[in-house]
Amino acid sequence: MSESAFRPASAGTSGPLLSVRDLHTWFELRQWGFLRLGHVRAVDGVTFDLKRGESVAFVGESGCGKSSLARTLLGLHRPTSGEVVSEGRSLGTLSGSELKAYRAGVGYVQQDPYGALPPFMNVRRILAEPMIVHGIRSREEREARARQVLEEVRLSPADEILPKFPHMLSGGQQQRVVIARALLLEPSLLIADEPVSMLDASVRVEILNLLHSIQAKRNLTLAFITHDLSTVRHYANRIFVMYAGRIIEQAEVNDLLEHPQHPYTQALLAAIADPDADNAKHQRDVPAGEPPSLLNPPPACRFHPRCPHFMAGLCDEEDPPDFEPRRRHWSACWLHR
């Protein structure tokens, strides 16, 4: 494609694909259009690198800011402060057409496959849209590429799928069309926001396996966002655990699942039920309370009001830095001090 200048770095260049430095994405909350009530701190100081060809998972409960982070990386929200750096250029400094080119380099797979597809377009049209937007005029080329991605997501026969409207497809097929659309512009980064949470159990594994194999085959960077830790083990290399707009723990996937360090991560893992009849015999340990409002988050460590290891005078007064209690395993908790 002609407009590859500011896409997230293509394979072969050294350095991370995407660097995120102290990123804040806040939303102004107004009443009647002008009264400022404050800021929703959806993403509140997040720093990480995405390497080429790796698969990372952002894990957290709803309202932890993981979706806002994804949208910021997609260029849909403007960062309030901090930087998203791709190819040495900060996202905030890109011009309109550069931003459009950047967006072509980031594929997006959403949670609700039916909602993600315009109901009044058939699959052929849905797949043509991104190519039209990016100036692929030739009808033959568009058709050929659409068929190629449909094959890649294993939707066949293409002749049957292309004229169908979204409501005629099953949930799994819809999600495959969404993935196909995300692949059309040959992105180097694929962001999947809860790609399977609205699908049936038996389809979930299928879609996750598909994403995994596409990631491996295309050597994509896959950032996938989920609230379900039980699905990440086989589909991510690294995990970032988010709570109230911040990353509170990050590590290689097995290390994090076997040796969770942060009390919140521990609670999250303890709440997950692997199918077992013994589950019914005892109550689970669940931290009291609910995730804080992003409008007025608690000071210092955001988890301290619910934390079983709360240390007064420390956890509620000073932000915990990222400790490294295990090798390449960071956790923002004063317990590791």
Binding site: R71, L76, Q110, P130
Partner: peptide, 8 residues
């Protein structure tokens, strides 16, 4: 949102 994400 998807349309914005692919640059419409």
């Amino acid at each position: 949102e998807a349309a914005r994400a692919y640059g419409a």
